[in-house]
Amino acid sequence: MNIFVLMKRTFDTEEKIVIANGKVNEDGAEFIINPYDEYAIEEAIQVRDKHGGEITVITVGNEDAEKELRTALAMGCDKAVLINVEDDVEEQDQYTTAKIIAEYLKDKQPDLILAGNVAIDGGSGQVGPRVAELLGISYVTTITKLDIDGGKVTIVRDVEGDEEIIEASLPLLVTAQQGLNEPRYPSLPGIMKAKKKPLEELELDDLDLEEDDVEAKTKTIEVFLPPKKEAGKILQGELADQVKELVTLLRTEAKVV
């Protein structure tokens, strides 16, 4: 089976956000594989181990993403592709990213494409479905179970807490929801092997794309932090009295009940 995983490098979930010069400051920040993409990588490995084939993990970004691609290879992916847009793309949105990935994939005849359902930084959740649409294949988002039997695919999809049991067929793009699996940690032999696995670096030129072809349709004009909260009120006294006071405060001061 020809399997592709779409991966994004994101801020570590522990990172505090600092804004400098109208942008989120990345200096000194720890980066990780987007947590939802880890589920996608793990699922890809399980599908390949069961059905055979090869996994290519793809990212669009700059050369710093090599580190996360190597981690994906150490987990068990077979090949990695970095589409480096640092020199070519100034303003990038989901339209841009999807167009670049689809252009790369269009002649690769993928059977299965996996991605995270959302990235924890930008949080738009668009790239997966956009890529599927550009490739003309079907997709299912926020999946928590995937079973492949020949060309027939049975999926459990999380819909705001409820589950849909969906029947689909290959080729297919799916996006991973938490609960799909338990992503493995790279093993030491895995890390050693990953160093020798192929990591291809491409630029827009290599995909016969011009900067204009992928020009963003939206633009960020400001980034800001939420207003700082003032210290709250810790109630005192007997517990029963505190509870009574809390209910009064919620009614008369906060006016939310």
């Binding site: 956000i17 924890i120 930084d121 949080g123 939206t218 633009k219 960020t220 004009i221 980034v223 800001f224």
Partner: peptide, 21 residues
């Protein structure tokens, strides 16, 4: 038209405009 949306799961916000389409 300016659209405000949370980024980094609400640790920050961005304002966006649509430039085409």
């Amino acid at each position: 038209l300016v659209f405000t949306r949370p980024i980094y799961s609400g640790k920050a916000f961005e304002k966006k405009i649509v430039t085409d389409g």
